[in-house]
Design a binder for these strands. Sequence first.
RNA 1: GGCGCAUUCGUCUAGGGGCCUAGGACGCCGCCCUCUCACGGCGGUAGCACGGGUUCGAAUCCCGUAUGCGCUACCA
Length: 480
Amino acid sequence: MAVRVRFAPSPTGFLHVGGVRTALYNWLFARHHGGTAVLRIEDTDTEREAAGAIEQIQRSLDWLGLDFDESPAAGGAHGPYRQSERMERYHGAVERLLEAGHAYRCYQTPEELEAARDRARHTDDPAAPTRLHRELTREQVARFEAEGRPAIIRFRTPLEGETVVEDLVRGRIAFEHRLLGDTVLLRGGGAPTYQLANPLDDMEMGITHVIRGEDLLPSTPRQRLLVEALGGAFPQTAHLSMILGGDKKRLSKRHGAASVEEFRAAGYVPQALVNFLALCGWSWDGETEIMSLAELVERFSLDRVNPAPAVFDHEKLAWMNGAYLRALDAGAYATALRAHLADQASPLAGAERLDELVPLVQEKLGALGEFDALVGSLVESRDPDPEAWARLAQDANAAAVLDAAVSALTDLEPFGAEQVEAALRGVCEALELKPRQAFQPIRIAIAGSTVAAGLYESIAFLGRDESLVRLARARTAVAG
RNA sequence: GGCGCAUUCGUCUAGGGGCCUAGGACGCCGCCCUCUCACGGCGGUAGCACGGGUUCGAAUCCCGUAUGCGCUACCA
């Protein structure tokens, strides 16, 4: 049977790294098996929906290179792909369940339910409060209806036996029916719950494998029971572990960047994020770390997915991003850099000669977002770093070095990095200073900072006139 | 409280009875390279949660304990 998987986020905000990992594993599994990847938006809870979230999710997936075959944007034969557009199907299914006796109307008010739940919490039947209206008499129903009480629809979960789930990642897991309780299918206002909409859509969309977070593991048996009551085939499941923050709590905003948009803004490349997340809970041979999307597709398998939770390691991601950046050829690097600067509306975005800066920064940047800090001052005039400027003033050699540098560069011809190096080395010899002593004041003069790109290349990039202007400006800040 | 999942260096992981005096990677430390910062090279640090079994032999299998996380919603 052809593989069909789905990624089914609810549009409550930006796409999170945990969500990306889920999307990625689904996508890799589909591509590996030549199957179909479906993107379905679970927007049954209008209360929690965030404006623009659907577009945002789609945009993030596009950026990551995860193309879903069927989606709200791309359409497909099993649509619509937004649950808010599938309401009649949920109600139809509920009608069938009601008729077959698999579901029933429950008239409990939220307050009644909560009170009962508090009482039952420490008993040996904590799920009891959910089935209080399971066997209402005709008279009781009539009375509730007469009172005008709204009804919710609950699933009639078997009271005995158990449901066994054969999870592809975790193996065999048994759940006692008695502890499940009667799941709410339709809310008071008639809106479907996740527990109804999600498995029904999977069924109607022909989903063969459900790959999702471990937090959904406990709802698997009730969804399975529901699908079977509807006469459908329940898909295979693979429950992925959670991604945690450094404190072992579920990853969230508190732990720093966690959304795709944030990594994008910081200048991460999508391949690095994808590669890193692929390795967050899965491995190929335990040794190979850098893998292209194509290699991941070829190598991915659910039986190598690790069931244990993983802490999200920003540092390793940063390293990997730098590795990807360094591996780019100059042209690709320039393209990525321009795209990033434009994307972030940087004032440097339109600058000419950016390509010339690539060799100066490529091996130094861990993320494209660091570009501005490293060489922004070469592209446009900036105020120097006050701390560096203060150090310049303190430097006993600064005056002599700056003067010597000016005379060494004034008539230098041609004005290339190699010639600049020779000239500056001459300055060192003449003053009997080590390069590290002599170059620091020059660096501060040229770049306005103690941390910068290569000195000779920077000077060559600036050109003679601008270099001399900067040296002169620094000279005025130095006594003597 | 109940149910479920998980537990190998600080972190991501390899390991599925003898190949393990536990391998790789990030981080960290040291050295080298060096015009700063990086890159790169070399070396080092650090781990099988605990307790019982099973077995000639256990990181690997079983049981228990502990700890963490998830679920226990008219959220998903």
